[in-house]
Design a protein around this nucleic acid. Structure first.
Length: 650
DNA sequence: GCGATCAGAT
DNA sequence: CACATCTGATCGC
């Protein structure tokens, strides 16, 4: 839960995700996503009053967040003050003090956060430097390298401070199975259950919060069945979501809720009260998405664990794992890092200690060498580890390179960044940008990251040693619950920039199996059976001791046979390690492979990266369209780290 | 009476 | 074992 107080040191006149107390005096507001713990004060009377008398105060957020927010009438008074922004489109914002007329300018860019529909991170660039506020996020290892807006040319921007989601920044959550791995486990459990009869139904015991939509949409698609939910109102303008959900209770997959739903379930009832029309009792199983529960396991578990005769837990996370956060921070190398969340059971000091090694200044040498040059940000190590490691890895292999590419316009098909409102179209979606990585043989940064966790001085005492397992040949796999589209499109030039839209694409046909313990006559769509090599997906809770159970990983569903074999070998080797650490070793290595696959996807080296889109700024309503030359100058200064005197250029 | 805050449940 | 939310009790304005 966010404990961010709302303001950043560099730009204290704006407030993010907090709207109470001091934040009531802010000149502009930013909402990263529509979760209540990030909306404190947003509907309060003081804010309402402030807006009533303000002509300039705005709330900046994504289109989806605006839509979700306004679907709750309690926030309707914000309507005329909301400025929805596109992703990846730097936008000028004037921060005006209404009493003095004093003004400060910043350029803000929304970056996808992968936390829930509409969730974004905010990148601010202005006189006080470049700072990033992540809100809550779940990004995979390597995703930062795919975000064009974090780069300037082929370098990473010089980021002064990052205010980051540290919910699972705890070695306990060193690795969390990928979204697609979790999805695969859930999908197969459901498949196995509902195929038995029309009376076999599933209840997805999800919390009342946005973030499960991609689960619903993928399941809906997979089973050609809509998911029953309480309300569809908030998704009215989001057909990609809407089409997989229903308020009609006659379906086998439910995600409906009721205040007493757990109680209902114990009495073999669905929250919506549905019963079979002919009086035949339903056979209900519940699946409870959880992260912390899995983080507490000291032994290996699969992504699905059976808790009782008819209840299961499914690993599922809205937030990045320790490894993912570390990768993200290592990549962008900020001078300062501030945690937005104190992980449960930790103190601020604990987190700070863990974050310190990831701060740039922790590595003086680089700073001294590169800082004066001002433009070598990309070469500055994505040096994951605090010390000692600079020399271990060749920087070149991890520094991302960019090239603007034109690709099939997948976003038009399922761009969830925008609700489809009749008058909104013409979004800048014809172009997508891909990270181009130099050389397929280069080890991924993820691999480095794993290796790096061997450091004795790494605070991660849970970090297992990572044996330098040879990397399997890069299989052609995708990274997300992505899809048929991707496969059809099959070219490796799939846009690699992480975005929510990919969560809403169709799933690929399974290419592996997961021998389900309880699988009887399941109508598996699998075409190849590699069962003997597949990690198991399911596990009974009391089977903890059985050594044969592994966590699954994203690879299991997406990689080719060859990749699969290699993966299995990796597993086999690592399982030999000390039991208590084996899991993590295994996970880490898998993750390493995962990243390699991902980066592999987009491989190709190119450097003509200065793209004009940097200057395509949608203006703040009411402001003038910026002159390209002025902006160019501003950007040049920003990139060069020059002090900026803000003139009235806009 | 409303809002802020906390504890507790789910 | 708790990713966020709701409910109810209490306190203060």
């Amino acid at each position: 839960m966010s404990s961010f107080a709302g303001r950043m040191k560099e730009y204290p006149t704006l407030s993010l995700d907090r709207f109470d107390r001091e934040n009531l005096h802010a000149r502009a507001y930013f909402l990263s996503h529509c979760h209540k713990d990030h909306m404190k004060g947003l509907k309060g009377p003081l804010m309402k009053r402030k807006l009533k008398f303000s002509l300039t105060v705005k709330l900046y957020c994504s289109f989806v967040t605006k839509e979700l927010l306004l679907s709750n009438p309690k926030y309707a008074f914000w309507e005329d003050h909301i400025v929805p922004l596109e992703l990846d489109s730097p936008t000028h914002v004037s921060l005006i003090d209404e009493t003095t007329g004093e003004s400060e300018d910043v350029v803000v860019t929304l970056l996808t956060a992968g936390h829930c529909p509409g969730s974004v991170m905010f990148l601010f660039e202005g006189a006080q430097g470049t700072v990033l506020y992540t809100g809550d996020f779940r990004l995979a290892v390597g995703d930062a390298a795919r975000m064009e807006c974090l780069h300037s040319g082929d370098r990473v921007k010089d980021i002064k401070s990052v205010y980051i989601d540290t919910t699972f920044f705890d070695p306990k959550y060193h690795q969390i199975p990928s979204r697609e791995a979790c999805l695969t486990g859930i999908r197969q459990l459901i498949q196995d259950w509902i195929c038995q009869s029309p009376y076999h139904v599933v209840w997805l015991n999800c919390k009342a919060a946005y973030g499960y939509e991609y689960l619903f949409t993928n399941l809906g698609q997979e089973f050609s069945s809509q998911i029953h939910v309480n309300s569809l109102d908030m998704f009215k303008k989001m057909p990609e979501i809407l089409c997989h959900m229903t308020t009609n209770r006659a379906t086998q997959i439910h995600a409906c809720r009721h205040p007493k739903d757990e109680e209902f379930f114990r009495a073999n009832r669905l929250p919506c009260g549905t019963t079979a029309p002919d009086g035949i009792p339903l056979n209900i199983i519940s699946i409870k998405p959880s992260t912390i529960w899995f983080g507490e396991r000291t032994r290996k578990t699969s992504v699905i664990v059976k808790m009782g005769s008819s209840s299961y837990r499914a690993c599922f996370s809205f937030h990045s794992s320790y490894l993912e956060v570390k990768d993200f921070l290592s990549y962008i190398g900020p001078v300062n890092i501030y945690p937005n969340v104190i992980p449960l059971g930790k103190t601020l000091e604990d987190v700070t200690d863990l974050l310190k090694p990831l701060c740039r200044k922790h590595n003086e040498r680089e700073e001294i060498v590169y800082k004066p040059l001002g433009t070598l940000k990309g070469t500055r190590k994505r040096c994951t580890s605090e010390d000692s490691n600079d020399d271990l890895f060749d920087e070149v292999s991890t520094a991302p390179r960019w090239r603007k590419m034109r690709v099939v316009d997948l976003t038009k098909i399922s761009n969830n960044a925008q609700p489809c409102s009749p008058n909104k179209d013409s979004h800048d979606t014809d172009q997508m940008y891909s990270l181009i990585q130099p050389c397929p043989s280069a080890h991924s940064s993820n691999y480095m990251d794993c290796t790096e966790s061997n450091d004795d001085d790494d605070d991660d005492e849970d970090d297992p040693e990572q044996s330098p397992v040879p990397h399997p040949p890069p299989p052609s796999c995708t990274e997300m619950p992505c899809s048929k589209l991707t496969r059809l499109d099959s070219s490796r030039s799939k846009a690699a920039q992480p975005c929510w839209e990919k969560f809403f694409k169709a799933e690929p046909v399974l290419t592996d199996e997961s021998e389900l313990d309880n699988s009887q006559n399941s109508h598996n769509t699998a075409t190849e059976n590699t069962a003997s090599q597949s990690p198991e997906l399911f596990q009974d809770e009391d089977e903890d001791d059985k050594s044969s159970v592994h966590m699954t990983s994203s690879q299991s569903t997406h990689i080719s046979d060859a990749g699969m074999e290699s993966l299995s070998q990796v597993d086999t080797v690592l399982v030999q390690v000390d039991e208590s650490k084996a899991v993590i070793s295994e996970q880490c290595n898998r993750d390493g492979i995962d990243t390699e696959q991902k980066t592999e996807e987009a491989v190709e080296l190119k450097s003509d990266s200065q793209v004009s889109s940097d200057f395509e700024l949608p203006p703040t309503p009411g402001s003038k369209v910026p002159h390209p030359e002025d902006l160019k100058d501003l950007y040049r200064k920003l990139a060069a780290g020059e002090e900026m005197v803000i003139r009235q250029i806009f």
